[in-house]
């Protein structure tokens, strides 16, 4: 996992609530398991019509947002199936930060495992950010979002902040302590059946 850098980008407003993981990556692509390349399936049914032509009215197809790394969405983002492909697709497409008033639990957890920063903010602030047209800076180290007009603070669990900043997933994090774990296990008097 790559370590999380300061992000400067315009925001992509996705003015929808309850965006479920099947909208993020439709099920027909779940059979594919190559690590990269899921970006092209992101929001597939919203981006393309049945002949796979781009739908001009969908925000991701607006050239203005082409290099955006920050997605600002509605309540309960990432609900539905636990498919981690949803996070892979967002990341592969180029999003590093997702801002919403709330996230579904498994999706939220999957973000941290893959280096995406999910930020939960008050509904009113999210709505305001969706209107923002200029460059926005997300600084995880200082837990701030800077727009042309203001600086917004966000909360994040200190452990999750650390793993994103250091680019460690839980597994890599645990293996940092491999030596200590082996030593403990050697010492441990607890019978292995427990």
């Amino acid at each position: 996992m790559e370590s999380f850098k300061k992000i400067s980008s315009i925001v992509t407003p996705l003015d929808k609530v309850n965006v479920d993981t099947d909208q993020i990556v439709p099920k027909q692509f779940l059979k594919l398991v190559q690590k990269s390349g899921f970006g092209k399936f992101l929001f597939f049914n919203w981006r393309y019509d049945e002949h796979e032509n781009k739908k001009s009215d969908f925000v991701l197809n607006n050239p203005k947002f082409e290099n955006s790394q920050i997605l600002v969405a509605g309540d309960n983002f990432g609900c539905g199936s636990s498919r981690e492909h949803a996070v892979w697709a967002l990341l592969d497409y180029g999003f590093s930060v997702i801002i919403a008033p709330s996230f579904a639990d498994i999706f939220l957890s999957n973000c941290f495992k893959n280096g995406i920063l999910p930020i939960t903010l008050d509904q009113k602030i999210v709505e305001k950010l969706q209107q923002e047209t200029g460059t926005v800076e997300v600084d995880l180290e200082n837990q701030t979002i800077k727009t042309s007009a203001e600086e917004i603070h966000f909360d994040i669990d200190s452990y999750k902040k650390k793993i994103l900043l250091e680019g460690l997933d839980d597994i890599a994090q645990t293996f940092q302590y491999e030596k200590e774990i082996s030593e403990y296990e050697k010492e441990s008097k607890i019978p292995s059946v427990l």
Partner: peptide, 12 residues
């Protein structure tokens, strides 16, 4: 339910 990375973690 858990995502794939978490399941991998549990398996190990």
């Amino acid at each position: 339910g858990l995502g794939h990375t978490d399941i991998a973690y549990v398996l190990l």
